[in-house]
């Protein structure tokens, strides 16, 4: 049981004050709430308090989103997997700086974009064969339809991965993450006008790379 004291002052002023001290016993050491029931802010607080499993749950909730951003940047499962791990590691290290002003997902998204931008600055993305054994058919299409669709999608993903980093980031955030131009500008450290121009040039370059579609 945790004990606290409440102080109450009554009376007009000075020496006439009546001071009442009340001891309050609160069951602060009761059973901690189940992690799954915690909000994102509470989950972050639980991580900072060192509760086991709290950060694992954050990873579990956001791993798909983070992986997909990384995949779109790198067009490679292997790179996306490595980058996703980096993103979460950076997030863990920076968790104490998470202010809670934005949603945790938005914060992680920004870390992911920055991590990807840093990575593409030092490493050209490699394309991955579209029939990679790691991937599964989730759509229930016929084999030929699936093949055609995958081939088309593979061309687009490879084309996106060839774009200059900022154009790529702007296009990915606008097209797949539905981020506003303002958010893109903040993430890239540019003006809103420059963010829009990046989206435009990304589409223009994508059109050139893909040819007539």
């Amino acid at each position: 049981m945790a004990t606290s004291f409440a102080l109450t002052c009554d009376g007009p002023s000075g020496a006439d004050w009546n001071v009442t001290v009340v001891r309050q016993d609160a069951p602060a050491d009761g059973p901690a709430p189940v992690l799954e029931s915690l909000s994102e802010a509470e989950l972050v607080a639980a991580c900072l308090e060192g509760r086991p499993g709290a950060f694992d749950l954050i990873v579990q909730r956001h791993r798909r989103q983070v992986y997909q951003i990384c995949y779109r940047f790198m067009n490679s499962h292997e790179d996306a997997s490595d980058l996703s791990q980096d993103v979460f590691l950076r997030a863990y290290r920076g968790l104490k700086n998470f202010k809670g002003n934005a949603a945790l997902g938005t914060w992680l998204h920004r870390i992911a974009v920055n991590t990807c931008l840093n990575r593409v600055a030092v490493k050209a993305p490699k394309s991955e064969p579209i029939d990679d054994a790691d991937f599964v058919d989730a759509k229930g299409e016929s084999a030929s339809e699936q093949l055609l669709r995958d081939e088309r999608a593979g061309r687009v993903r490879a084309a996106v991965a060839q774009l200059p980093p900022k154009q790529r980031a702007a296009l990915i955030m606008r097209t797949y993450e539905d981020r506003s131009h303002q958010e893109i500008a903040q993430a890239l450290g540019t003006s809103v006008g420059a963010a829009k121009a990046n989206v435009f040039h990304a589409l223009q370059n994508l059109k050139k790379i893909l040819g007539n579609i």
């Binding site: 791993r63 991937f135 097209t175």
Partner: peptide, 27 residues
């Protein structure tokens, strides 16, 4: 047309085992 094509392009779904593998690596 280009944008529409890009929008319709999904990220390939990795193996279901991958997610737990990723979580374990991060852990």
């Amino acid at each position: 047309r280009t944008w529409q094509e890009a929008m319709n392009t999904d990220v390939p779904e990795p193996s279901p085992l991958f997610w737990d593998h990723l979580s374990a690596r991060v852990h």
